[in-house]
Design a binder for these strands. Structure first.
Lengths: 351, 351
DNA sequence: TTGTAGGCGTTATCAT
DNA sequence: ATGATAACGCCTACAA
């Protein structure tokens, strides 16, 4: 008579890895005791403890973190969602976030949107399913109604699985006061750049780079305010938009320098853009800073080593990442709307 | 008569999030049916399907990815373990790995060792518990017996939970033929650098930078081979070790240039080191390339924009990350020992 | 100090 | 086409 098919042959196939029960069987104790030994809960007799340890060792037992996570035990991961990593600033930001996550026993997830909204949404959905503890979103899109609504959607959907959303590099969002924001004072930085140039006597100060992303909006606003401070007005012919890439910035800068009445100074969206300006200046044998002053943004590691050294706005990106992570993981009660200071680092490109 | 305490009041507190049963209850069907609708398995009547969808929507139901993962369903994450992110090369590598992971529906985990062995071990242990699908390890330590044993240990422990280990930036490991390795031809790159310099008539060619990491070993070996190719021999006074940081490289380069019989060319471990050499040359008013030729490694984005443009060894780091990820996720049957080509990019720093 | 017995949320099998 | 149910690996309230 064939043995009747084991009654409980349903559900998923069992894995081949050793589990708690296997360890218990080998040690001759109950699974509960093994659990107690491994988690360090309650009192277990030393002798028993040793037996269990030995059995676990022998079987090469590894606790299944997924099962633990499902029980609410185990730490949920922190996720950083960012356009890309093509910039030293993002790397530092990521480093800061990773440090906080790892140091507190969380896994660190990373995902790139490449500026694609659909991708961003897909990522958030996945993170929701995976029950991330928190999401740090470096949102780079244009800050319009639509974007605000999208963010509101993220906030809701993440909240529904008890995950925190932190907006990084984004200014305080009046329409969404409950979203934590961590930013650096990009407005103040760009403003300081213009004031710095104004003090050197420049009156035709251009702005080159992105103008329609969240960061760009702030930097452009700072530029405008700085002009006002310096007693100047915006000349729209001196505001040129280009992507945040050296090659494109180079082309745009050529146009700017070829104008009949070219600027004597350029405030760049980023150091990457500033490098494009350097290239254009070299093409036309325009002397920096003699005929053209240049200010970058981000104070990349290489800024000091360009010729001439690039004046740039330094911002604490590592800190920004770290503080975002702390907020996302609810490790802090600090203000949920952080604005870190930026600082102008004057070098030779502004004389 | 007080209702008897619910029998099954044990275990963890129930969560407040809607689960499959809630959806089933609201839709008036069984949990199994809900599962079928959501996973798209088997046939479900359109009417029922609609009811379920509606109920799920209304409750804001989000599948619990952890529970799915526990059943062997759902995709396990890919992890990149790397010393840090302080270098454009690592960022590219990470981008490549992330792209492959995300594109194939895997989460992308990242963790930094900061060159600390204990941390590396802790990270691997965690990844094991979390049942990562694969681990791409950028191992930066010295390649000695001890390191090989550590890696063997990782391989075993990861294999025990069915996870793949891929060594990235590491040459083929004869003692561990079963570990997949993805590398760029660092030896050939450094060798080409020396040959390039030799062809320009240089005979006193120094090496500056790390010499005891995995990458350094290869680059130094390439340097040695290149000298031989050029009919030269190693002068140990021209081999100076320093960390992979511009500040330290600057100091080390000063020593090198102050020698009574200084080198006429320096092969640097990295572009970061090369920048240190530039600084030292400026300090001493040594002309590059007139009095000193310099070659970097990695071909960082800024290399072309230094003055003079820095000759450097270009390596396909994005590709390296992507291929590592593919191997780690077992998406490919390609050779498990990949060696990608490098290329010398000649600029003004070598005349 | 240790064992017993659910139950976390999901999916697969069997039965209807 | 749908429902009932066991099972994944773990943890903990309760009983002994």
């Amino acid at each position: 008579m064939p043995e009747p098919r084991k009654r409980g042959a349903r559900g998923p196939a069992p894995t081949n890895e050793a589990n708690l029960r296997d360890v218990a069987a080998l040690a001759g104790v109950s699974p509960a005791t093994v659990s107690r030994v491994l988690t360090g809960t309650a009192g277990v007799r030393d002798e028993t403890r040793a037996k269990v340890r030995e059995a676990a060792e022998e079987l090469g037992y590894v606790a299944n973190g997924l099962a633990q996570a499902m029980l609410g035990r185990g730490r949920r991961p922190l996720a950083l969602v960012t356009p890309a990593l093509h910039d030293a600033a993002f790397s530092e930001l990521a480093s800061g976030a990773e440090e906080v996550a790892t140091h507190n026993g969380h896994l660190f997830l990373m995902a790139f949107t490449h500026g694609d909204v659909a991708r961003e949404e897909a990522i958030i959905a996945t993170l929701r399913e995976q029950r991330a503890a928190g999401v740090v979103l470096v949102h780079a899109g244009a800050p319009d109604k639509e974007a605000d609504q999208r963010i509101a959607g993220y906030l809701h959907s993440l909240a529904s699985v008890n995950a925190t959303l932190v907006l990084c590099g984004h200014p305080y969002l009046p329409s969404l006061p409950s979203v934590a924001t961590v930013n650096v004072d990009q407005i103040g930085g760009a403003r300081a750049a213009v004031i710095h140039l104004g003090a050197k006597g420049h009156r035709r100060i251009a702005f080159l780079g992105l103008t329609h992303s969240s960061a760009a909006n702030q930097r452009f606003l700072g530029y405008s305010l700085g002009l006002r401070d310096a007693g100047l007005t915006i000349d729209s012919s001196l505001v040129v938009e280009c992507p945040d890439e050296t090659v494109e910035a180079h082309l745009a800068a050529l146009l700017l320098l070829r104008k009949p009445d070219p600027p004597t100074a350029i405030v760049c969206f980023s150091d990457i853009v500033a490098v494009g300006v350097y290239r254009a200046a070299r093409d036309f044998h325009v002397d920096i800073p003699g005929q053209l002053a240049v200010v970058g943004f981000d104070d990349s590691p290489f800024a000091a080593d360009l010729t001439p050294g690039l004046t740039s706005i330094h911002a604490p990106f590592y800190d920004m990442g770290a503080r975002s992570a702390r907020l996302a993981l609810r490790l802090t009660d600090d203000d949920t709307h952080v604005d870190l200071p930026t600082e102008l680092v004057a070098r030779d490109s502004t004389g």
